[in-house]
Design a protein around this nucleic acid. Structure first.
Lengths: 199, 199
DNA sequence: TCTCCATCGAAACGGTACGTTCCGTTAAAT
DNA sequence: ATTTAACGGAACGTACCGTTTCGATGGAGA
């Protein structure tokens, strides 16, 4: 299970070896995928990458930093299409997010990151920053709908982002990412109806 | 910070010593309160309680089990009043939950438990059970509202519980339990409006 | 009353991971 | 040619894991 350590690399002189950095990131992702957060240790990553622990600590000051790096490296393939309907936009967003979290390492990585943020201050701050950016970004979905008259005045766009994130998080963190389309559809429909009526 | 270990207890014969059990639970709660999840270890709890580690492991098979025990021992002071208005019921529920999580150890304990569930299978199963029960319980709020005609037919009562929990969780896990009443009010109002319109 | 026995706190075990310090090697930078 | 910084590897001391062993305790059953 922890077999494939490639050939060890060497110093390439007085500068950072990008191969080592890549190998460490790859190994971190692989360990998270195969052993989950429970098996995610700096030592395991170092073994897997055939890297020295000092090399990891030189470039990533903490486990949280490595986690964040790996998470941000994940390819995002989330459906942010502007369909002209807020309900449809939200549905596609949630559905593609659930799928990505289910079918790629992203879900396990993000779960781990949220967990790490509960005990590590740096991870907590990074998560707060990240979520602030997500609220702003997803809020644009609502602003577009507002311009179309789908959302009542007085609705804070970031609130909707928060509802969607909360719905997604609780499913991720309790291993319930397998909700069917119908359930997700009903959820976003209720939110959309509420937003139309206004606060 | 870790000073107050009381006098060590002793065996009271061939039966469980309830004083030790209490001391261990008290110590676990105190460690979580003072040092958070990062400082929560079986050894720290044992030192604090002046108890032997085997005594802990004899009665709690894992850190997760102790966490769950401590969480369930928390006094619940959540407002489940039936006010005759779903919006008001939900508002009071969320407001009192936020307050309890902010002002008692319950918030830190539950955060820790959710984090533990991301790496411990037993904690994950216990959390799933617990949330299932919470969905059912909070769903009754919606069923009462349905009987009053405040909620459209076809709305799954547990869905609302999920929305409320998700909203609460994301605030707990990102250290944002200090939302003011107005924000919470707007949130539940949108949900209530959406539920009235139906899925 | 006397023996049995599950419990207690304490100490120590082997194992794992932490984060750090050395080491000899490498090759770019100067 | 010399200096400099990065590399992998090994070892360090610390902390916590979960378990075992120990002598002392005192209730339960013979």
């Amino acid at each position: 299970m922890e077999k494939p350590p490639e050939k060890a690399r060497r110093s390439i002189g007085a500068k950072r070896n990008p191969d080592s950095a890549d190998a460490i990131r790859d190994a971190a992702e692989a360990v998270l995928l195969e052993a989950g957060y429970a098996g995610f240790s700096i030592e395991a990553v170092a073994r897997r990458a055939r890297a020295g622990k000092p090399t990891i600590y030189r470039w990533w000051p903490s486990k949280a930093a490595l986690l964040l790096d790996v998470y941000q490296r994940q390819k995002r393939d989330i459906d942010y299409a502007d369909t002209g309907s807020l309900e449809e936009d939200m549905f596609r967003f949630l559905k593609s997010l659930f799928r990505q979290w289910r079918e790629t390492p992203a879900g396990n990585i993000f779960r781990s990151f949220v967990a790490e943020a509960q005990s590590d201050e740096a991870a907590s701050a990074a998560l707060a920053d990240y979520m602030k950016e997500r609220r702003a970004y997803n809020g644009r979905m609502v602003e577009r709908a507002k311009a179309r008259g789908e959302v009542a005045a007085g609705v804070d766009p970031t609130f909707v982002a928060e509802m969607l994130s909360g719905y997604a998080w609780i499913h991720l963190l309790t291993n319930r990412l397998d909700e069917d389309d119908e359930t997700i559809r009903k959820a976003v429909r209720i939110i959309a109806k509420g937003l139309l009526a206004g606060p």
